[in-house]
Simulated assay, not measured.
Amino acid sequence: MVDVHFLNATLRLKYVTGSDEQNEPIFITKSYRNISPSHNEGDLVAVAHVIASLSSQTLASIVKQETNELS
């Protein structure tokens, strides 16, 4: 049996800030650390959209990155 122990989580919001000479999008990422394991994905998406609404850039993606210890 494998034990999984939550260590930490980070919420990453990726924004489109413009485009380069080849018309490819330029991105910037903002990270929010120490996300509690008790928050479900639906809550995180709702919070991410509220945070993104405060920005003038367009939200491109929302990522939850979790680190666990396996033993």
Rank of each mutant, 00 (worst) to 15 (best):
residue 13 L to N: 00
residue 59 L to A: 05
residue 64 K to N: 03
residue 21 E to V: 14
residue 45 V to L: 12
residue 31 S to H: 01
residue 69 E to P: 02
residue 19 S to L: 13
residue 67 T to A: 08
residue 56 S to W: 02
residue 69 E to H: 06
residue 41 E to F: 10
residue 61 S to V: 02
residue 48 A to F: 04
residue 2 V to M: 12
residue 20 D to I: 10
residue 20 D to C: 09
residue 29 T to Q: 09
residue 1 M to L: 13
residue 11 L to W: 02
residue 24 E to T: 05
residue 57 Q to R: 06
residue 60 A to Y: 12
residue 70 L to E: 02
residue 62 I to W: 03
residue 33 R to E: 04
residue 68 N to L: 12
residue 35 I to F: 02
residue 40 N to R: 13
residue 12 R to Q: 11
residue 63 V to Q: 10
residue 26 I to Y: 00
residue 52 A to S: 13
residue 23 N to S: 15
residue 43 D to M: 14
residue 63 V to T: 08
residue 69 E to L: 14
residue 13 L to D: 01
residue 58 T to G: 04
residue 4 V to W: 06
residue 36 S to T: 10
residue 56 S to N: 11
residue 69 E to G: 03
residue 11 L to H: 02
residue 21 E to S: 12
residue 30 K to C: 06
residue 55 S to D: 09
residue 65 Q to D: 03
residue 38 S to R: 14
residue 63 V to H: 06
residue 22 Q to H: 04
residue 47 V to L: 13
residue 10 T to R: 11
residue 70 L to T: 03
residue 50 V to C: 05
residue 38 S to C: 10
residue 19 S to N: 13
residue 12 R to M: 05
residue 60 A to R: 11
residue 17 T to N: 08
residue 4 V to G: 04
residue 5 H to M: 14
residue 45 V to T: 05
residue 47 V to N: 05
residue 50 V to A: 06
residue 3 D to K: 15
residue 34 N to S: 11
residue 67 T to F: 00
residue 42 G to A: 13
residue 44 L to N: 07
residue 57 Q to T: 01
residue 41 E to S: 10
residue 60 A to M: 14
residue 27 F to L: 14
residue 71 S to I: 06
residue 49 H to E: 12
residue 30 K to V: 00
residue 40 N to Q: 09
residue 66 E to G: 00
residue 54 L to E: 04
residue 32 Y to L: 15
residue 57 Q to P: 00
residue 23 N to F: 12
residue 31 S to N: 11
residue 1 M to K: 12
residue 71 S to G: 06
residue 25 P to T: 03
residue 35 I to L: 09
residue 51 I to C: 03
residue 62 I to L: 08
residue 28 I to Y: 05
residue 26 I to K: 14
residue 10 T to W: 02
residue 25 P to G: 07
residue 36 S to R: 15
residue 47 V to C: 06
residue 33 R to N: 08
residue 8 N to M: 15
residue 34 N to K: 14
residue 69 E to R: 15
residue 46 A to C: 11
residue 65 Q to S: 08
residue 41 E to D: 10
residue 9 A to C: 11
residue 20 D to E: 00
residue 41 E to Y: 08
residue 37 P to S: 10
residue 34 N to G: 09
residue 68 N to G: 01
residue 50 V to H: 07
residue 70 L to V: 10
residue 60 A to F: 11
residue 56 S to R: 15
residue 16 V to H: 03
residue 51 I to Y: 01
residue 57 Q to G: 03
residue 55 S to G: 04
residue 45 V to E: 07
residue 36 S to A: 13
residue 10 T to K: 13
residue 5 H to Q: 14
residue 53 S to K: 15
residue 4 V to E: 11
residue 67 T to C: 03
residue 29 T to P: 01
residue 27 F to W: 05
residue 46 A to F: 09
residue 32 Y to R: 13
residue 18 G to M: 12
residue 12 R to A: 09
residue 62 I to R: 04
residue 64 K to A: 01
residue 31 S to K: 14
residue 20 D to A: 06
residue 13 L to I: 05
residue 3 D to W: 05
residue 70 L to M: 09
residue 11 L to E: 00
residue 13 L to F: 00
residue 48 A to C: 08
residue 25 P to N: 10
residue 54 L to P: 02
residue 60 A to D: 07
residue 39 H to Q: 14
residue 25 P to I: 07
residue 20 D to Q: 10
